[in-house]
């Protein structure tokens, strides 16, 4: 796969149009890597001049901050800012709403000022400017429900971009009862992804999966690697993995482009 790094471009004296912030999940987690690759495919098809940091990227510190470890967060942030500023990065795109929120909102006061956008916003941009390669009819008429990631939706009020992009698929978009500002969390945020839940009577991802199942979907679309894991597990818990697909918007678009 053709994935240039900032270091390579710098050596060639080039500055890419945009930096793709892959994030830890997108780099290491097997499920999330598929999302990363799907997004790269879209970028390549649209001839986007992008680069990644590769081994020079480090955790944004977001999850440490949500866990209360402000020290670790700020250390990570300052290290990353040093790298980003050295490369004179102006624009960043990421598939992870947590990185998106953190880079966009929490880095500026520590010296990191960039325009940060979520991959669904970027795909929307490609779509609007006509750079996006045509999308086939793989998902035409399919029932798709979109689960809003908390850190994209409520946290930053991005509700339309993912829906507009899904609109490309000519699918049948169905909303869950709780959506947009009232969407229920998948259960992964606030560092919950990395620990067992507290004692309760149900897992949050199962409750959210029940919300989704009520729309009778063929596909549950996500916009966050953690939501994706949570909803995939939820579908397994409900023994629906054979009939319902959980995929990131980037994966759906990339697949539809291939057809």
């Amino acid at each position: 796969m053709n994935v240039p790094t900032m270091e390579q471009l710098m050596a060639e004296g080039k500055q890419p149009e945009i930096l793709f912030w892959v994030g830890s999940a997108g780099s290491y987690d097997d499920r999330a890597k598929k999302i990363t690759k799907a997004f790269v495919k879209i970028l390549n098809k649209a001839n986007v001049d992008f680069a990644v940091l590769g081994p020079e990227e480090s955790c944004t510190g977001d999850v440490a901050k949500r866990a209360g470890n402000e020290f670790l967060f700020q250390m990570q942030a300052m290290m990353n800012i040093e790298v980003l500023n050295a490369y004179e990065v102006k624009r960043i795109v990421t598939c992870d709403p947590h990185s998106f929120n953190c880079l966009k909102n929490e880095y500026p006061s520590l010296g990191g000022n960039y325009e940060v956008i979520h991959h669904t916003q970027f795909i929307k941009e490609l779509m609007d400017s006509g750079r996006l390669q045509s999308v086939g009819n793989t998902y035409k008429g399919k029932r798709i429900t979109f689960h809003d990631p908390c850190y994209l939706g409520r946290a930053n009020e991005v509700y339309d971009a993912p829906r507009d992009v899904l609109g490309l698929l000519n699918a049948n978009l169905v909303e869950m009862k709780r959506h947009k500002a009232t969407a229920l969390c998948c259960g992964a945020g606030g560092a919950q992804m990395f620990k067992e839940p507290e004692k309760g009577d149900k897992d949050i991802n199962v409750l959210r999966t029940e919300d989704a199942l009520k729309t009778n979907p063929e596909i549950i679309a996500t916009g966050c690697p953690y939501c994706n894991t949570m909803m995939t597990d939820g579908i397994k818990a409900k023994e629906k993995e054979d009939s319902i697909i959980v995929q990131d918007i980037a994966e759906l678009i990339a697949t539809a482009q291939d057809s």
């Binding site: 994935v3 790094t5 892959v22 830890s24 997108g26 780099s27 290491y28 987690d29 890597k33 990363t36 690759k37 990644v52 940091l53 590769g54 081994p55 990227e57 480090s58 955790c59 999850v63 990395f194």
Partner: peptide
């Protein structure tokens, strides 16, 4: 990274 992987492997994907 929040998992025990080597930072040098970030681009292996």
């Amino acid at each position: 990274a929040p998992w025990p992987y080597n930072q040098m492997d970030r681009l292996n994907w």
